[in-house]
Design a protein around this nucleic acid. Sequence first.
DNA 1: CAGTGGTCTAGACCACATA
DNA 2: ATGTGGTCTAGACCACTGT
Lengths: 233, 233
Amino acid sequence: MSERPAHGWQTVREEVLRRIAEKIWRPGDPIPNEADLAAELGCARATVNRALRSLSDDGLLDRRRKGGTRIARQPVGRATIEIPLIRTAIAERGARYGYRLIERQEAVAPGAVSAALGTAADAAFLHVVSLHLADEAPYALEDRWIVLGTVPEARDEGFEAISANEWLVRHLPFTRAESEFSAVPAAAARSGALDTAPGDALIVHRRRTWLGDKPITQVDMTFAPGHRIRTQQ
Amino acid sequence: MSERPAHGWQTVREEVLRRIAEKIWRPGDPIPNEADLAAELGCARATVNRALRSLSDDGLLDRRRKGGTRIARQPVGRATIEIPLIRTAIAERGARYGYRLIERQEAVAPGAVSAALGTAADAAFLHVVSLHLADEAPYALEDRWIVLGTVPEARDEGFEAISANEWLVRHLPFTRAESEFSAVPAAAARSGALDTAPGDALIVHRRRTWLGDKPITQVDMTFAPGHRIRTQQ
DNA sequence: CAGTGGTCTAGACCACATA
DNA sequence: ATGTGGTCTAGACCACTGT
């Protein structure tokens, strides 16, 4: 009958969600403290804590020491986007993956790149531009700057058969990342490789990663027209 | 000297991150099980569990019962975007907030909208279009469909002084949300209100919310040219 | 079957914010 | 000063899954 232990934290979570959905508890309302809820629901306080913490992480509750727990007045919207390997994303759509290297050269990065990553202005970078294809059609243009001081092994890789996207993911973990999404007109530099029509708008995902405090890379992934980025449920 | 209890879960988390960053543990490597790690680090297994679970949530570890814990081969990128009230976002930039209602009428929603929300094809919606301004300049165009079956009180609100964005957030919590980002050319319908130049590209954030299993609304928030969506650190 | 992570419990102490 | 959430502990049982 019951899938979960009758008093598991997910059960508590669902009970709280139910009370919100049925307007037993309304935005701004205080809810009982953990000890009282635990007594009412017949479980340990730690279990209630786990459930309320998960709801608080989701932005549905506001919690303060001494102040207690309230239903959030503005349920903070949070959207979590999963960022797969491009090859994986294409394979999951059931399409054949293709890859083409466009440019690869050592260079000094533009000031904005080195500044954002926190390297010296004259630090050595590897600049790799490539195209990912799904069933022969352009899918995404990858424009990447790799910090050679952190990833010297990249010098020995030609990136002719494997994308920098994939090579990095295989060779180096990261512990911190920043993302930024914006829209650019198809007329922008390099987007010609994407087979766009004049007037198309493209979505760009810029990402920077670090390992500990050492910068690894910045990448601009520009997607073909019509691409959508969805949150996972 | 130490900010946290010497054996808190954050300390364990940082120790694991350190071992990844210093390549003591490499992608794909198994790490000791929870009991062993707890003994090594001198804390309870539950504390180790808390730390490893948080790293697993961040995509840095792969955990499987019986299989043990490994450093992720592909640290799954996850970007979490916070979605503030538009008025709050503008105030945080230090700009003056302005609001203008463009259209408000009861209507049947396009099939794609009712289908995505899961309402009947002929369900009653309120269609509200409005403009948010920062220091008199257009900031975002809000195009919203409200499910009147779920939110009948919206019939009594003119949305002349308060945006639907804000009114909904004040009146109704939600328990589930979906987001989708895309790029559109400035030429697209209605974007004229955003003071765009020909050739501009705009980023659109489409969002749908539910309360329990009842659909609340779908909104397309189209931002002025140059807008960027950043992840929180 | 056996080893691992997932979770629950009961109790305790602590940090913090508020009254 | 006090009540609240945040966390740690030690122990236990369970669910899943690889062997």
